[in-house]
């Protein structure tokens, strides 16, 4: 987690400032927490990856954490449900819980500008 905090700090200073200037270039740092390799987990992973590729291509970082393997991460990331997708950047921190099957909600949950995707 210490790494995570450091990276958060780093982003929150310089890169976040930049991100504000150019919304289109906003960098997304996402973490997806799952509990074991269940169909629901796999579903969530797939949906998130799909969405990132579609809307955030080239400007996102996605980390997938299995809480069963790293249980300490649940507390440090304030996760209580599974699956949970945490948007660490851009700030503020946002969470999307569920199997990510409702795309609209996922988009609004992550606050991704649809315009961006349209431009694409």
């Amino acid at each position: 987690m210490e790494n995570g905090e450091n990276s958060r700090k780093k982003y929150s200073t310089e890169e976040f400032e930049e991100a504000l200037k150019k919304k289109v270039d906003q960098k997304f740092v996402l973490r997806l927490f799952i509990t074991g390799i269940t169909p629901r987990s796999l579903e969530a992973i797939e949906k998130v990856r799909e969405l990132c590729e579609e809307h955030l291509k080239g400007r996102y970082k996605l980390e997938i954490i299995d809480l069963y393997k790293q249980p300490d991460k649940a507390r440090t990331n304030q996760v209580f449900a599974a699956p949970t997708l945490v948007r660490l950047l851009p700030l503020p921190v946002r969470k999307v819980i569920g199997d990510m099957t409702e795309k609209e909600k996922l988009l609004s949950g992550l606050d991704i500008e649809i315009i961006n995707s349209d431009q694409k």
Partner: peptide, 15 residues
């Protein structure tokens, strides 16, 4: 928090 689809409280259990 945004909810999309099914979920459970495994996070809480794990914690």
């Amino acid at each position: 928090i945004e909810e999309t689809g099914e979920y459970n409280l495994d996070g809480l259990f794990v914690r």
